[in-house]
Design a protein around this nucleic acid. Sequence first.
DNA 1: TTTGCCGTCCTTTTT
DNA 2: GGACGGCAAA
Length: 771
Amino acid sequence: MQLEQLLQGLTEPQRAAVTHADGPLLVLAGAGSGKTRVITRRAAYLAATVTSPCHVLAITFTNKAANEMRQRIAALGLQGMTVATFHSLCARLLRQFAGHADLKSNFSIYDESDRNEIVRKAVADCGLAIDQWPVARVVSAVSLAKNHMLTPQEYAQREAHDFGAKTIARIWTKYDELMRSRNAVDFDDLLMIMARMLRQKPDVRDALEDMYRYTLIDEYQDTNLAQFEIARRFCQQRKNICATGDPDQSIYGWRGATISNILEFEQHYPNARVVKLEQNYRSTKRILAVASKLISSNRLRKDKALWTQNDDGPPVRVIECEDADSEAEYVASQIKELARQGTPLKDIAVFCRINALTRVLETALRNNGLAYQVARGVEFYSRKEIKDTVSYLRVLANPDDEVSLVRVINTPSRGIGQTSIERLQDYAQAHKLRLIEVMRMADRIDSLSRSGGKIKQFAALLDELQTAVNNPIYELIDKVLKRTGLEKEFELTSTEDNDRVANVGELISSAVKFHEETPEGTLVDFLAQISLISDQDAIKSESGSVTLMTLHAAKGLEFPVVFMVGLEEGVLPHARAKDDPTQMEEERRLCFVGITRAMKQLTISRARRRQIRGAWIPTVRSPFLLELPLDMIEWQSEDAGTFRAGRPIFRNGKGVDTFSRWDAAGTGGRQGRDDHRSSWDRDDDLDGDDSMGRSFRPPQPARTAGRGASGEPGKSAFGIKVGQTVTHARYGLGRVATIEGTGDDAKASVDFNTAGKRTFYLKFGTIKPVR
DNA sequence: TTTGCCGTCCTTTTT
DNA sequence: GGACGGCAAA
């Protein structure tokens, strides 16, 4: 391989980061500064010059990033480098060194719902009431404590001022006990046990540092204490650590990430070389200016000057819509128009703060015939049919996995009820036997008179399946489906909008893929892989579809066209952050991450009303919108289905939230054409004073039906004419009152029975004639 | 033992 | 508005 090739096209600082050999290195990489390129090349450079690939360890934030990096490095002809996420690396090493960590190497990795079940049991076993010790409370306290590498005892001591801490510690101890007896770990355990093992087992640590002589860690701003500790121990002697990240993109504080890991890198690693990458190659000047202005409001940050040689690009658009439905409809119609003009759908992404917001967007995209994918890898594996099938696999891989065993014992129904299961568990506990063993002898247990035979039969079925455990996984799954009756069950319960057979088919496909990629991979490996899947991993880049995702999932990605929705108080920033300046800054960083994903075109939107728990609630404009540089932005506001350009008016920043049309003085610096000028002439006041919900006005009823004053009877455009009945995907049946304008500017005002009068540009095809 | 219904809770973000 | 747990009836 040519070294020249690795250094080709790099700027001076990039080159410095790639070629730095021994000793600690911190790469402070601003958004879009070519970080991925730098770390990939650096990994390759090290592997090709100062060491060999097998001694380089690269840790990424998602499996997707790891796969991409692995492929790029393989393409350079370098084999055998370890590229993994913290969690997958720990899972692998803990299997290898299971004995040192008091685990069996076939341990199960419990997801959220499995873990919750164990917490519930732990609370009950401690003789406590679940409504006084809710799962969520226990989980968040324990998870945070584990991320800080505390033991239950240390936690109880440290939080002694907290009345509940002692009890939490007790539940936690019980929880650990239950997890160990099931030979299971949770996500936090993977990191914590690993970190503790590195600390307590010097021989293991030495062996690992000898293996991984150069460690690269990406997204270092989002590492927690356990991850920090793991990284530190890996390079304890040689100090060959390279951390890359951007403090402005730290968005996982809520799950224990400590931004100080990156901010204080130079204290942790004296003599560290620091390289700053500040040139942005991704975004237009305007997008970058908007992002920079926003993030400058954060007080806890190292100032950084991002710059770019890219074009100005079009203004960033901020759209204020009447409600969440029309916001979604707006996004969909814009995407439709972009697609018509030739933008591939895969170049377009829609971001939102919370998953709940994707639903409206999905509906709108579907109604507009636009292909989309939602970045939710985890969701697939939480489907009932998938969990059922996977639970069988888990039991076969780890017979101690009682959560999975209990889950499948009566799935599909085979007449073994709750009572029998409890008696089985009691018996097992009383005789210190494994549940699976008790099941094998169930016919001889008196308390199980009626179901004993069935249970024994089921145990025999598991034993039979066990013989196929080393077959290729797709074959094993097939056998499980056939022999357990799951397949029949799925065939019977599949419906049009939940095709269970097809879903399980997808699981089999993933097993086939696993077999192709890692022919030597075992069942345990397969299960670990699907347990550690991330939302980002579900994104198919070759698919011709729009990608919908949360801002968190958008981290590390880029798209030519980006829409960000829901810029409202309580959504972004989220309500939970309201009274906490630290959390508010994290929300702002989240917004910054969203903005900086955009390469060419960015549209930010907000709805004046949103449905929360079924009720329409007026919203308040996100404070972040008020922090954007007005001269980089084109503001538009919706009024009865029409969007008109204008500028926001803020009085005292909070209470008043209104909007006025552009005047001559306000148009300076704006570029491009404005499709909505024709609507300026309307004189009705834009009703923006909706803050606090005081002067919220419900949608207005139809004012006039039939001929309006300005309508020309008989006029038509895009196959729609005045007086015609039309349908709208959301508002249902309506009647065209007027058509104004011609060509692309033609728009129709439609009276709906349900939603009053709304106006639509006909070019978008939002309304369809009824024949 | 199973099924279905009802009431209650909650609602960020994810490996 | 939805998910889930608990409870009652078949």
